[in-house]
Design a protein around this nucleic acid. Structure first.
Lengths: 361, 361
DNA sequence: CATAGTCGTGAAACCGGTTGCACAGAACTC
DNA sequence: GAGTTCTGTGCAACCGGTTTCACGACTATG
């Protein structure tokens, strides 16, 4: 037996039925299929329900229908502003569409991701996986069991939302070139995410096309500290500008530069990505807007739309990131026409060693 | 009728029972009360379950027992770093204790808060309300229905976790005084939260005790922009240092000061609160660490511990914020011994107009 | 006016677990 | 060796909804 919520407080469908003088089926229909009933009946039931404070029990409904009315959002790190913005957009959209949202933080680990997916599976109608770290096979397994929408991972056959920042990075490289920068750095993360690879490649290609020298650096982790720590190496490379994988790293670079008395944008230009904290740094950071909240919203829409057509259509939804120019980018220091002629022999990105490591793409 | 998960994929208790040659009750007990069974039986059932990939359906279990195995976390703004850090701590702790976490963002509105509480009530065993904006009565109502733990709101009779930053602010005022500052500003938020009031009061009292002049400002919203916008008024007040209600506001002030060529900490000192983004600003911000993650963890522990003793004991758990001194605080500009004697006639905070507005405390 | 079709409602089965109670067999007691 | 207690398992009711099906009343049809 089970005594759940204290009896007098939470009325059940039976109590409403008795009070309204109808059957439980009718009460149920008054809420889920009112079109099957006489308007008068619906009215009466609703009135009684309101008076009693009755709300259909979502758990019972879920058991009976198999639809939970919940979705789960799995992210690698809630603390990362990209993901917190994404969560915000996703949760709001889910709420708007009548779904409640579970949140799971995987702490960047593959194992936790798998555990969370397993534990939540029965309670949700589908998952949004943001930048998942698992291998494709596992994700495919889960997608076979429950509808899954992936953000920022390009897996054929799985519906996905991709924030395409490549164009933004290309444009940013163009901006730097037009400002006279001849050697630029790209500061990414080592265990590469799809996003990192995409950005790195865009910078490499755009640099090559414009005849710039591109030096690549891998921060240990995409964090403020990592960015700050790598500044010396970046400066030694002779770069006069850097593009970072995200705003956190860019901000770290900015701090490190200030420590060394290098002024931004006077002596060095910086470009970040995500555009969440970019407006709050000093100087405000030129950044590629990744439309995080929109990505969250879109993923939720894709998921919920797909719920009716059980395996959801394997859409590939691309959001174009846009360059937002602020105050961290400026003319290259001491640029002279003569310097411009000195084309480096080797252009383009350093070798792309992380393209086929299994977890990225 | 209800066809839920595709039949062959998700085995039910009946299938396991049949396969193992026992009753459904026995399978149930093998998982929830193994002590009631012969070890051999438990073993056999577990073996079959494992082979079939059976996992007890949490929804059915919840309906039957009235315990959902879920909690909900309601915050005013996921984007705020204080709350995202808190969510992270809370979710991790809930997971560790076997609970899944719903997340709700109320967008700082009272109404949404109420709606979310209502919608999630059946699905969760309890709520953590972070800095709730609702009036006390409503919160008490909800607490009567479902266990509730509140963070940063001091409501008698409701278990709560309070981050006590008063001591930290007092210490910070002492620091500023010792650095020779004689007029200091407190920049808070208008529709005051409990935290804001607490901090404002601490600054006022500490200032009065040390013979400092304290000027108070209310930013329209506790945000970067608001902080930046209020800089002119702060400077006009003659203050040489400011304490902000949180790091975001402090960072905004810092940006605004830089815009006006006022250097930090050379010309002006700044103190923030929360200590999440404080380490990432430039210069790094002196801030009061609010132990956000710990607050989340503690609240979850309090809630889950209290679940056994249904209305949970009305504990009042206080976490002491600690001052972390970084580089945004320095000696008052051009301080002279003579200036020190010029005691302002009126010391202490401006009138405290928001103490009894109903939603704060 | 008999017959077929429509419509609104109720009875009952079902979702997948949990648990009170009954009962059979084993283990004690005297 | 009969009576008592203990232990492990099954039966069946229950949680609170949804949904199939049957049925009676009412309306349209010829």
């Amino acid at each position: 037996m089970a005594r759940r919520q204290s009896d007098p407080l939470t009325p059940t469908i039976s109590r409403v039925a008795a009070e309204a003088g109808v059957s439980r089926a009718t009460v149920s229909r008054a809420f889920s299929h009112p079109d099957l009933l006489t308007p008068a009946t619906v009215e009466k039931v609703r009135e009684v329900a309101l008076r009693l404070g009755y709300v259909p029990n979502q758990v019972a409904r879920a058991l009976s229908t198999g639809r939970a009315g919940n979705i789960a959002l799995i992210v690698p790190d809630i603390g990362n502003s990209f993901f917190s913005a994404l969560i915000r957009g996703a949760q709001a959209q889910a709420h708007k569409r009548g779904y409640a949202t579970f949140i799971g933080d995987t702490d960047e680990t593959e194992a936790l991701e798998d555990v969370l997916l397993g534990k939540l599976a029965v309670q949700v109608d589908g998952f949004v996986l943001a930048s998942p770290r698992q291998d494709e096979k596992r994700i495919r397994d889960h997608a076979g069991r429950r509808p899954v929408v992936v953000i920022n991972r390009d897996i054929e056959g799985i519906p996905r939302v991709l924030v395409d920042t490549a164009a933004g990075f290309t444009e940013a490289v163009g901006l730097l070139a037009s400002l006279g920068h001849r050697t630029i750095a790209y500061v990414g993360a080592p265990k590469s995410s799809w996003s990192n690879q995409q950005r790195m490649r865009a910078v490499g290609e755009a640099g090559a096309a414009l005849g710039l020298k591109v030096v690549r650096f891998d921060a240990v982790r995409p964090s403020h500290e990592a960015g700050r720590a790598i500044v010396d190496r970046v400066l030694r490379s002779g770069a006069t500008a850097a593009l970072a994988v995200d705003d956190g790293v860019a901000q770290g670079l900015m701090a490190g530069l200030s420590d060394r008395g290098v002024s931004v944008p006077g002596d060095f230009s910086l470009v970040g990505c995500d555009n969440i904290i970019a407006a709050t740094t000093y100087p405000p950071l030129t950044s590629i807007d990744a439309f995080c909240a929109e990505a969250g919203r879109t993923a939720v829409d894709l998921l919920i739309d797909g719920l009716v057509t059980h395996p959801p259509p394997p859409d590939r939804h691309v959001i174009r990131g846009e360059l937002t120019i602020r105050a961290s980018t400026g003319p290259a220091p001491g640029r002279r026409a003569g310097k411009k002629s000195r084309r480096p022999a080797e252009t383009g990105a350093a070798e792309d060693h992380s393209t086929s490591d299994g977890i990225s793409r």
